[in-house]
Simulated assay, not measured.
Amino acid sequence: MINSGIKWMFLIIGATIGAGYASGRELWQFFGPESGLAIGLFAILFSFCIYVILLISFENSATHYLPVLQKIVGKRLSGLYDAMIILYLFSTTVIMLAGSGATLQAFNFSKWWGIGLISALLIVVFIWDIRGIVSLNTFILPLLIGGLLYVLLLFNMQQDLSLFPDLNHQSNWTAALPFTALNILPLIAVLGAVGNQMKSKVEIWIASIGSGAILGTISYIYNGSLIQISEEILLYEIPLFAILKHYPYIMFLFISILLWIAIFTTAASGILGLVTRFRSFVKGPFWLLAALTIVLMLPLTSLGFSTLIQYLYPLYGVLNLYVLSCLLLYPIINKFN
């Protein structure tokens, strides 16, 4: 049960730490100065919402997200949010593909090499259905988390930064709400596809608390690092590279590879949500449906990585606030029902 809980925890983290998050662009879009309290609230809200989603998915033995979504927002609004999830997963996976292109551009390759590489590997991993994605996350996420924390903590020590926030100056605490809402909607799609594979509620507790604690810790340290290079962020498509310039090239190369893998795991999670949703009425193997989905996405990658995040992420964060409120109130409403 513990191993299974850790497996789902890595699936959650892998779906969250993608191009926007791991690059620092998404964190800077919502947080910045005076956001220590906001990040703490995010970790708590995130864990609670994940617990509710996993519990609903487990109790309904779900194989795709629609039954879970209906429980959360009701049948009347489920159609609207079903369309929103499809649009969200589609557009954010486009962002992941564009992020892969931006990563390889940092090494003076054409962005189309990065987009083509991730597209081909996404099709390959879906030959093993859901098991391929879960196994990939369990193997690579500890490396990503460890590598990212190492670089950020080393940067904080070199800059002599304090890890404790000034609680008298936390004006940006409300950012916790749209940031949590932004990251919750795609996880409904991903976790709604694995309800029939969970065996007990112990797995749910481990996955929800563990993912919230890890993401909250990384977010807090990462945001503090970005504040120190705020004047340089505008010069970089991927803010993490502004931090990595202080280190030897081998460190830059290592973290860039892990960043690309984080992009890959989130893209795989997005396609997983889409494929499991449509597989009930579009017949075909996982890899073929994934290939067709990617072909539809490719023309949109020309919009650019930071441009997509700048406009789409805040919009989704606001639109998803209703889903967040439904998740927070679900235990109370369900008790009365």
Rank of each mutant, 00 (worst) to 15 (best):
G116I: 06
P285E: 07
H64V: 00
I243D: 01
I12R: 05
G79P: 03
L253S: 12
Q158S: 05
F58Y: 15
I332P: 14
S269P: 05
A62I: 01
I206N: 06
I206V: 15
S78R: 05
E59C: 01
S119V: 05
W205R: 14
I2Y: 00
L272S: 04
A175E: 13
A213V: 15
G212M: 04
Y316A: 06
A15S: 15
Y51V: 08
L154Q: 06
I238V: 10
R131Y: 09
S100M: 11
F252R: 08
G212N: 07
I12Y: 15
P331L: 09
S61M: 10
L167F: 15
L37E: 04
L117Y: 03
P239M: 01
W113R: 00
S4M: 05
G74D: 08
Q29K: 03
P33C: 07
L143N: 00
L148A: 08
D166V: 03
L45N: 02
L117P: 01
K283S: 12
I261E: 04
L240H: 00
S35D: 06
I115S: 10
I263A: 07
P33F: 11
G74Y: 06
I229W: 04
W28F: 12
D129M: 03
S171D: 13
K201S: 07
G5N: 09
K75L: 08
F179N: 06
S302N: 07
N137D: 15
S47L: 06
G114T: 11
L87F: 13
A267N: 09
I333K: 14
L97S: 08
C49G: 10
F30P: 12
V295P: 07
Y21I: 01
A262F: 00
L143H: 05
A102Y: 06
Q310D: 13
S119N: 06
F278S: 11
F58L: 00
V190H: 10
I204R: 06
L234C: 05
S302P: 01
G210Q: 08
I56N: 04
